[in-house]
């Protein structure tokens, strides 16, 4: 594990570079294939609406995968992530057009822990609403 960020260089409140990730219907089809999650709520509008959703929604695990990129890009080596958890609070609704939706992720150091680890709290939004809650990673720094 070769973290590029030094424990000594971060403080509680240190902000990680924020990112915006696009997601279209094509993204969801590709993620379904790669992850093996073919639940039709992620690609079939008719089915999604029948089960009470406003439209097709992104896989929660896709959103979780995008959110941690803010941490892995910051620290360089993804092996630095020792713990990562989220709560799926609201769906990311993905309309059937060229633009799709966006997932906005920001993060900051919330606590300095033992063994050169820090807790990073992530804020994950789409269409102006939080889509993940309790989104936290523990990361081992250099």
């Amino acid at each position: 594990m070769t973290a590029q960020i030094s424990y000594a260089d971060v403080e509680v409140g240190t902000e990680l570079p924020a990112r915006t990730f696009p997601v279209t219907r094509a993204t969801l089809v590709q993620y379904a294939g790669a992850s093996g999650d073919f639940n039709p709520i992620h690609w079939n509008e008719k089915f999604a609406k029948e089960v009470g959703l406003p439209d097709v929604i992104a896989h929660g695990m896709f959103t979780m995968a995008e959110a941690i990129r803010v941490v892995t890009d910051w620290v360089g080596d993804p092996a630095a992530v020792v713990e990562y958890g989220v709560r799926f609070t609201r769906p990311v609704v993905v309309p059937n057009d060229d633009e799709g939706a966006t997932i906005e992720v920001s993060g900051k150091v919330a606590a300095k822990l033992d063994d050169d680890t820090v807790r990073v709290d992530l804020t994950v939004m789409s269409a102006g609403q939080k889509v993940l809650g309790m989104s936290r990673a523990v990361v081992r720094l250099a």
Binding site: A79, V81, G85
Partner: peptide
């Protein structure tokens, strides 16, 4: 069934 929470703890990648 819906997915409520997900968490991982890693010994190594």
């Amino acid at each position: 069934v819906v997915h409520g929470d997900q968490k991982f703890t890693y010994t190594r990648p």
